[in-house]
Design a protein around this nucleic acid. Sequence first.
DNA 1: CTGTTAGCGCCTTCAT
DNA 2: ATGAAGGCGCTAACAG
Lengths: 334, 334
Amino acid sequence: MADVASIAGVSKATVSRVLSGAPGVSAETRARISALAKELSYVVSPDASRLSRGATGRVAVVMPQTTTWYYGAVLCGILEVLQPEGLDTLVYQVAHDGESRRFFADLPAQRQVDAVIAVAFPVSDFERRQLDLLGVPVVVAGGSLLHHAYVRIDDVLAARQAVTHLIRAGHERIAMINSMVTDERPFAPPADRLRGYRSALDDAGLALDPELVIELPWSTTMGAQAMDRLLSLPRPPTAVFAFCDEIAVGALRSLRRAGIQVPRAMSVIGIDDHPLAELCDLTTVHQPVQMQGRRSAELALSLLGGAPVTEQHLTVPTHLVIRGTTAPAMSGED
Amino acid sequence: MADVASIAGVSKATVSRVLSGAPGVSAETRARISALAKELSYVVSPDASRLSRGATGRVAVVMPQTTTWYYGAVLCGILEVLQPEGLDTLVYQVAHDGESRRFFADLPAQRQVDAVIAVAFPVSDFERRQLDLLGVPVVVAGGSLLHHAYVRIDDVLAARQAVTHLIRAGHERIAMINSMVTDERPFAPPADRLRGYRSALDDAGLALDPELVIELPWSTTMGAQAMDRLLSLPRPPTAVFAFCDEIAVGALRSLRRAGIQVPRAMSVIGIDDHPLAELCDLTTVHQPVQMQGRRSAELALSLLGGAPVTEQHLTVPTHLVIRGTTAPAMSGED
DNA sequence: CTGTTAGCGCCTTCAT
DNA sequence: ATGAAGGCGCTAACAG
């Protein structure tokens, strides 16, 4: 910056004002200096700038994984909002317990970012306390966390939309394949979706058969495993509601291998409207994932802006997408 | 830091030495101070630290998208290496031309990171020049770029592995569905894979029928579209080689809708070994995506370390994974 | 082994 | 409208 100033024959202060868009510089000088800066392809050092001004211009995104579509899509939405604002995005992947301990104990994000967006992951008590310690606004996408701002879907409702669709098609033995979650790290979506499943059955006066609820720790093939288990039951279900589309697709594979016709002999529905759902012709409940990323970034922005944020808790809508994996129950099945 | 120093009754310099692991402090003092810091949950301000020390402790990852599996997996690999080293990762999504222009013209990453990892995207001449302007090491994952370090697969070979598998199964009319790329932003993989397809046919003495090579701009459904086109041909192929698994799965959907049996009447093969490939029973050529992320991060690290890097150009291996979508050609087909 | 003294590169009053 | 000076929080020479 000193260079630019001396070449332009002005003081660093003026250059600073121009480059930071501060008022108090004649249009002529402003134009001349910004042109010069561009020519020299000079940009201010963010670090120095932030050191003196206080804010970092960065926001941290914390997610348990980066390889599944959901997290990629949320990240995409976040970047779409943050990048145009000139904010940089730091990604922290906090996967297994070891990483989690280190991350939350060392707080590498501290004094490093102006805000934190936590994307859909189970937060333990300890972790929550550490988050507060960061001393910056925290917004949660795809979940919720005490008093913090959040953006999410209504998981109970989404599950109800899925299960109700099956019930209307005449199904009575409806299984659920759910993602397992530990007590120590509570994670709302699986619990909420199970609740939605229950209440939909209730409303229809259908009994819940505990055998039909399979809970397994997440993995690529867990949908297939769960389906295998359901098929080995003395009285298998006629329809399956999966926690998410990836699981539903795994279930479809098992069914294909077992030679069971979908949807004639078995209906399958998921949640997400994963791109792959369209490819597999999977009936599902759509949730706007990228939008949740965008909204959470916008929330972070307004929290940053200091403006009193009126709506800190956003619930975005979901809707049923009927494709080819659900059909009326075969009559005379029982 | 001043607080910690005064409470501990030492100078800031000592605290700094302790917290940065610098030598020249008695074990006793060191222990006392680091304990105190932990108790106060005090961490040094990265910005201030970096301002005075010069290095930023951050690396930029630039990718054209974040929603597809490939990019998520590469990012995951990168984070696996960078996070344990205490380096932070800045993600820039540079998707369409507008964003690209802004990113490369404004160089938001300048003076902001110690290295840049560019993940699988077409780089124009202008962009390449701007990258050099950043003045930091650049490593490319999933591609290559002049003199810069890179980690990639041998795309020609991967394509040959796929096509040769089909040829050995007796197929003679083998189509290729490729991702379209513009001249202005060259991107090696599509061109290389096409070359591999050609050379495999050549080696087998098979003629290449231009009608069987479909090139379309990338989209979720482009595999399906391309397959539709192939099916409407007077003499459709008996096997299809897709640029990647996501495209192959789209092709499978078209085939299913058209009522064409896979693999009896049509063989399909992709590249990637996408998790979804296993779910769809798709034969494919495996490439180690996450590992490419790791390797590129390691390359960046050693480039950063100043140590003379011996091997700047890594090619990681691929291999055929035979599943259920390929089978011998039906005899008497022609 | 520890304290002192300069900056790192920029922003921000306060003068001019 | 512009310049001069102090300080953001830390590190890196020097002294001691």
